[in-house]
Each structure stands twice: as structure tokens, then as C-alpha cells.
Computed example of a mutant assay.
Amino acid sequence: MSRSALTLIGSVLAAGIAVAGCSAAPPPAPAAPPAAAPTAAAPEHQGGHGAHEGHGSSSAVPALYAVQSGPLGVVATDGGGHLMYRSDKDSAAPSASTCTGPCTETWIPVLVAPGQEPELLGVDAALVGRLARPEGTSQLTLAGWPLYRHRDDPGGLQNAGHHGEDGTWFAVTPTGDKATAS
């Protein structure tokens, strides 16, 4: 369940308790989701740990958010706050992924179910697409670039250590460009 859904449920429960207890205080307003990375679904449902090629599918809605990271400027993350990456070995025109097999154990493709649209925040919907992977799944693209996350990224922007890895993998901006360290 998403963090924002849990916050809303907590607020509703607190309001119910206040009314049941005849409290004179007004019920608390629902808390807004964190601006940095609202959660739309658990990371493992967005091409997260264990969601490697051909392993299961998910009904959770994937998300792409534009988030200020500090050292890399504004970057794209998923709903769990995991940095989105692109590979220089892939192609944007046409969209093509070269990361298959063992590569997907480290660089996890961001998958989307057929007919499902990602939740977007600060990312232009016109730049978001998908490509068919060899095993039949659908991978999100941004400005044509296939999107991935790193398996060791626990979420949160404090872990930008994979940016520039192997001179090939780069955190991606909300426009699909490579992020640049400031």
C-alpha cells in the first residue's frame, strides 16, 4: 500500500476516533504526500527486486516523478524514490534495450502492464512511452530511452553512487537527458 494511502487511512482513523470520543478538536486534515517522491506503489511492483525478465507481472501503477536531488540536479525517480537510469548502450530512436539476461539482475527494467499508464509528477506525458522487451514485457521509456533502476538502490536520493557506472549508466532527468553532477 502506498505511503500516501496509508497517510490518508491514518487521518481517517484519527478523525473517527476523535468523533467517537466526542473530542472538541476538529479532525486532522489529511497529510499531503511528500513532495520529493510520493509513493504510488511498492518498489518491487515497479520493476523492483525480484521483478526480472519474465518474472511475474504487477497491477500496481508505476510512477515517474521529477525530484530535486542536490548533487545531480532534477532527476526522475519511481514512486519508491529510486533513481531512474538510462544506458548509453541502449537506443532512443528507435527505443531499444540491450540490457537482457544477467544484466537485468543489476539493472532492473521499469515495467508497465499492458494498457496501464504511469502516474507522472513533473514529467511530460508526451515524453513517456514503452517498448516491447524480448520476453514480452513492456518497459517504460523517457524521451525514447528505456528506464531502469539499480538493484542496490534502497530508494531516496542519498544513493546516487551508480551514476556514471561503467561509463554507461546515468541517472536520467525528467526530459530523458543524462543528469549532470553539479
Rank of each mutant, 00 (worst) to 15 (best):
G79K: 03
G80N: 03
G81D: 07
L83C: 10
L83R: 15
M84K: 07
R86A: 04
R86E: 03
S87Y: 06
S87D: 14
D90C: 02
D90L: 04
S91G: 15
A92Y: 07
A92F: 10
A93I: 10
A93D: 15
P94L: 01
P94G: 04
S95W: 08
A96G: 12
C99D: 13
T100F: 05
T100N: 06
T100K: 08
C103F: 07
C103R: 03
C103D: 05
E105M: 11
E105T: 14
E105I: 12
T106Q: 13
T106K: 11
I108M: 15
I108F: 14
I108C: 15
P109L: 05
P109N: 11
P109S: 12
P109E: 10
P109T: 09
V110Y: 08
V110S: 14
V110L: 13
L111F: 10
V112C: 06
P114S: 11
P114N: 08
P114L: 02
G115A: 08
Q116L: 08
Q116R: 09
P118D: 04
P118R: 01
P118W: 00
E119A: 12
L120R: 00
L121D: 14
L121H: 10
L121I: 14
L121V: 14
G122V: 09
G122Q: 07
G122P: 06
V123M: 00
A125P: 11
A126L: 06
L127A: 01
V128Y: 00
V128W: 00
V128G: 03
V128K: 01
L131Y: 05
R133K: 02
R133Y: 02
P134M: 00
P134E: 05
P134S: 02
E135W: 08
E135Q: 10
G136P: 07
G136T: 07
T137S: 11
T137V: 03
T137P: 04
A143K: 05
